[in-house]
Design a protein around this nucleic acid. Structure first.
Length: 712
DNA sequence: TCAATCCGTATC
DNA sequence: ATACGGATTGAC
């Protein structure tokens, strides 16, 4: 299939090679036995059916009965008899004739005439399914929310008038190219949403890429915000400028808290009625109500969490994403699309401008810059320096004689003293800990190797109720622990959760209020007065005047992870916390408990996510890891995996790693193509092989995942 | 020679 | 799933 997306996309006007055989449109019998006539004009409905079988992942043609002619509109939900069963689907298109050789069946019913799947979203969903070796039906389940009949019955409201609040564009002057980017958004008139050039993808090989628009540098940008930046304001401004130019805009953020922040910033510019916010925590009715406001064109701007990347936005002029490195952008349901990729695909199909903004920089974003698909908007070093806090690394040693209180809190001396100073100056202190809850595992103090049971090799565990660590598998207390790796005899908590940290800090700083923010109780802001704020990554509250100090604890639990992105992910989380500190000139300090020689720590000390990302990407090129190459994983029972791999006609240069066992039942193989441009062919080959297995009704479920999570 | 049955395959 | 076509079987 290569890059020839066109051949797969419905809705593109391709010349027909041969005149299609005319479908039999003579009166046919319905299930009820009544004879029906097909609609006089465009009698054939092309449908996307909600069937799970991979080999049925293609449109099916049905006849539109004359009595349903008016309601059988493009994008509506339908119900048809398919292989003897009633199945749901969407009407992709109305056409004059079908290429299907056999007799066409009639549509059974139009569930509702509401056009919920427009041509653009259908094309996007098809392209996403192709890229991820998935089915259109799976992607449509993510893209179109379930219908809510009562909500639908409320007629469309007139489009909201957009507040014309001007905004201060000064902050964009911090970024080289920032004002030009905004100007490009503002000057792009309606109609710019049509790409005239050949479809090009950011996946194309570096160097082999041309721009679809003459001045794409101005309309696609990777924005690396300065420390302390009000990122929500910047995103909201880009959205507002686009909307004011008469185009639609779409912005995606990782979680509900970020969404609330963006919502507030955007409401200030467009008014409450000027946009909708979509997220998974909404109930079915409210979710569908907001979806319809977008789909009916009542609003021009949509913001939301990952599923919003598929939102229907008319005359789309801008797609934007905040913090693309956050795992929450990855959809956990098949075919596991990533919001960044969905938005890039959308931008590629519609010609919309693109804004990829973050405090850190992912390897993927770096690839967009290095392939020149996007320009980078970065601030000059002196601007960054002026806004960044002072960052210092420290070992985890505690001077017990000098800092008894620090020892109580298990805090390195420097961290403890930094926190104390900030508190004395009346500022809040943020303490970032890797995970919430009590200590789940323990490791050797000397070499940090995970501690294992001397009897059964199971992992050791420390429960709050027990003073001594014990084996999680066999329960044997580890009183006589000896590290298998280095012979060390002392244990420490690997991951000290926020609950325990809060408890200990409370004892070390008597009289200072301790607040926690974690997964199930997230604080959005804290006041500008002394407090210890213990938070897990992603849940750090914003301090109104900035934190006086930020402590990054237990960092090696993060760095020690076996996955590919450990360094990148650690830096992303540290920067996210550190950006909430005051500038160094205002006393802002960050202490990271980690080895200052590590690349990720260096990048934090110098506040240089760009150089780190460039180095990270170079490393991955060398090691043939994504995103430098394209990979897919194939997981399932051993013989099923072997069968799929045998069936797959992989593109030239593809290599297979494994399979290796992943648990008692399943094995996993990784398939890699050295050129990203071979990615579509790799996905197509795996999809086709899965289709053959599906048609054969082969035993065992095989999960195919492009850009697999286990590499993260 | 024809109907009953089985199996594989397509599902419009 | 179910429906259909072609192949196979077996009784006449």
């Amino acid at each position: 299939m290569g890059n020839g997306l066109e051949a797969e996309l419905p809705g593109l006007d391709l010349p027909q090679v041969a005149p299609a055989p005319r479908a039999r449109t003579a009166p046919a019998r319905t299930a009820a036995g009544r004879s029906r006539a097909a609609a006089a004009s465009l009698p054939v409905a092309r449908l996307a059916l909600d069937v799970p079988l991979v080999h049925l992942d293609r449109p099916f043609d049905y006849l539109v009965p004359a009595d349903l002619d008016a309601v059988a509109v493009v994008g509506c939900r339908v119900r048809v008899r398919f292989a003897g069963r009633m199945v749901d689907g969407f009407l992709l298109d109305r056409v004059a004739s079908s290429q299907h050789e056999g007799t066409l069946a009639f549509l059974e019913k139009i569930v509702s005439p509401e056009p919920v799947l427009g041509a653009n979203v259908a094309r996007l969903a098809r392209a996403v399914a192709d890229r991820y070796a998935g089915t259109l039906a799976d992607v449509l389940r993510l893209a179109v929310p379930p219908r809510h009949a009562r909500v639908e019955a409320v007629p469309a409201a007139p489009p909201a008038s957009i507040a014309q609040t001007p905004f201060d564009d000064q902050p964009w002057h911090r970024y080289s190219g920032g004002p030009a980017f905004l100007a490009a958004l503002a000057s792009a008139g309606a109609g710019a949403g049509v790409s005239t050039g050949p479809l090009l993808t950011p996946d194309a090989e570096q160097g082999a890429l041309a721009n679809t628009k003459g001045d794409a540098g101005a309309s696609r940008a990777v924005l690396t915000v300065v420390p302390g930046e009000d990122w929500a304001a910047r995103l909201a401004e880009a959205v507002a400028v686009t909307v004011h130019s008469g185009q639609g805009a779409l912005a995606v953020v990782p979680d509900a808290r970020d969404l609330a922040r963006l919502e507030a910033a955007l409401a200030a510019l467009l008014g409450e009625a000027g946009f909708v916010a979509l997220h998974n925590a909404l109930g079915p009715a409210e979710r569908y109500r907001r979806f319809l406001r977008a789909s009916r064109g009542e609003v021009r701007a949509v913001i939301g969490t990952r599923a919003a990347a598929f939102a229907p936005v008319p005359t789309l002029g801008l797609v934007a994403i905040w913090d693309d490195g956050d795992d929450l952008h990855a959809e956990p349901r098949a075919p596991y699309p990533h919001a960044l990729q969905v938005l890039l695909t959308c931008a590629q199909l519609t010609g919309a401008a693109t804004l990829v903004a973050a405090t850190a920089r992912s390897a993927e974003a770096q690839l967009l810059v290095e392939t020149r698909w996007a320009a980078q908007l970065v601030a000059a070093r002196e601007v960054v320096r002026a806004h960044a806090p002072a960052v210092a690394p420290t070992g985890d040693d505690v001077d017990r004689a000098r800092d008894a209180a620090a020892a109580t809190a298990r805090l390195p001396s420097l961290a403890w003293r930094t926190a104390r100073d900030a508190l004395e100056h009346g500022a809040p202190v943020l303490v970032q800990v890797p995970r919430r809850g009590y200590v789940p595992s323990v490791s050797c103090v000397d070499c940090h190797a995970p501690a294992r049971c001397g009897r059964c090799n199971g992992p050791l565990e420390l429960r709050s109720s027990h003073a001594v660590a014990a084996c999680r598998w066999c329960g044997k207390p580890a009183a006589d622990f000896a590290c298998a790796h280095c012979g060390g005899r002392r244990l420490r908590a690997s991951i000290v959760g926020s609950a325990r940290t809060a408890e200990e800090l409370g004892r070390a700083f008597p009289g200072v209020p301790v607040r926690t923010s974690g997964r199930d109780a997230v604080l959005s802001t804290v006041e500008d007065k002394p407090a210890l704020v213990v938070a897990t990554p992603g849940a750090e509250p914003v301090a109104e005047g900035g934190y006086g100090a930020v402590l990054l604890l237990d960092t090696w639990a993060l760095l020690g992870r076996a996955d590919l992105r450990a360094g990148e992910e650690a830096l992303r989380r540290w920067l996210a916390a550190a950006t909430l500190a005051r500038p160094a000139s205002a006393g802002g300090r960050v202490v990271v408990v980690a080895d200052g020689a590590l690349a990720a720590v260096q990048a934090l000390l110098r506040w240089d996510p760009v150089t780190f990302a460039a180095r990270e990407l170079a490393d991955r090129r060398e090691l043939c890891f994504p995103p430098a190459v394209r990979m897919a994983s194939v997981t399932g029972p051993a013989d099923a995996v072997a069968e799929l791999l045998a069936l797959a006609e992989l593109p030239d240069g593809a290599s297979t790693l494994g399979p290796v066992p992943v648990d008692e039942e399943d094995e996993r193989a990784l398939v890699r193509v050295p050129q990203r441009s071979a990615g579509p062919a790799l996905a197509a080959a795996l999809h086709a092989a899965a289709g053959v297995r599906s048609a054969r009704k082969a035993e065992g479920v095989v999960r195919v995942q492009v850009d697999p999570r286990e590499l993260w």
